[in-house]
Amino acid sequence: MNSSAISVRNLWKVFGSGGAKIPLDPELSALPSSNLLERTGCVAAVRNMSFDVAKGEVFVIMGLSGSGKSTLIRCLTRLIEPTSGSVSIGGQDILQARPAELRDLRRQKMSMVFQHFGLLPHRTVLDNVAYGLQIRGAAKNERYARSREVIELVGLKGYESHFPEQLSGGMQQRVGLARALAGDPDAILFDEPFSALDPLIRRDMQAEVIRLHKDMGKTMVFVTHDLSEALKLGDRILIMRHGEAVQCGTGDELVGSPANDYIADFVSEVPRSDVLTLKWIAEPVASSTPGDAPVLSSATIIRDAIHTVMHSSSPVLVEDSGTITGQIDRDSILSVLRSTRAAA
């Protein structure tokens, strides 16, 4: 997997004394959390986690509070020291990195945006954004020029000499975002960046992230507990529970074929017609379907297909890269819509 930006293998993080032994012990490592706590006094926040993040992908780690998602993302730059396993970034195993190498990695390759912003209250917006560059040893002119660019990019032009506490939460997080972007890292890690913001601002910020991702194509790892945010932003979503990966896939995979009841319950309130594509409801082509029936791509979202299907007198054919793979008709669309309403 050389094309992956971040590759995680068998990653464990166990809190508590003697935690280092647990991943190696086949019996203990198989214990559920509550028994583990009782037996050893340790908490396994991340258990045997493996995944890859492709270059330029937005990878969402999702789970409820306490599922270990924040610990996991901190393990990626060793803000929390993992117990065992490997994390390789651009082919380099960072768990083996010496402190200087690790600092270099944090300065050049990965930056992070935090839930509570983590801005320095004694520095202006400009100095906050320039902080990372200053740490690297960039000259004053250079770092201010670059910071001004980034501040404009996140829409904070004119606020350079304000202090963080003079800004609203949304604007503070824009500063956090600008600080992460200033160093031009390969990947940005987001730890529930918008959870502390109110819903309208959150929507704006999500749009901002989508825009930035489109413009810059950076790899992003995004932690959230909000399913709709995950579906909106994520190319792929990893759902965590009790420190373990429950399912990893695209949004429509999670909704269309949940791995177990937990996921099914989780996604039950998602409006299926907004997430699923035609692939998920296509039926085999019936012989009665005329050959000149309208054709839609299997990657079309169901909601977008409603108009075509409702106005076609015959079932609609579904194609996948040039070949017809199935058909859909009014009934199949309606049944999806009905289940959506029932869920809502």
């Binding site: 690790l102 600092r103 930056s111 992070m112 935090f114 839930q115 320095l120 209250p121 902080y131 160093g183």
Partner: peptide, 29 residues
């Protein structure tokens, strides 16, 4: 000093001396 501020500065790759002079001493002043 709040943990999240310290963490944020660590995530940018500060050395411990840089952390002391840019973060800890100014914020504890």
């Amino acid at each position: 000093i709040p943990e999240n501020t310290r963490e944020a500065s660590d995530s940018l790759g500060t050395t411990s001396l840089q952390r002391l002079f840019t973060l800890q001493i100014p914020m504890a002043k």
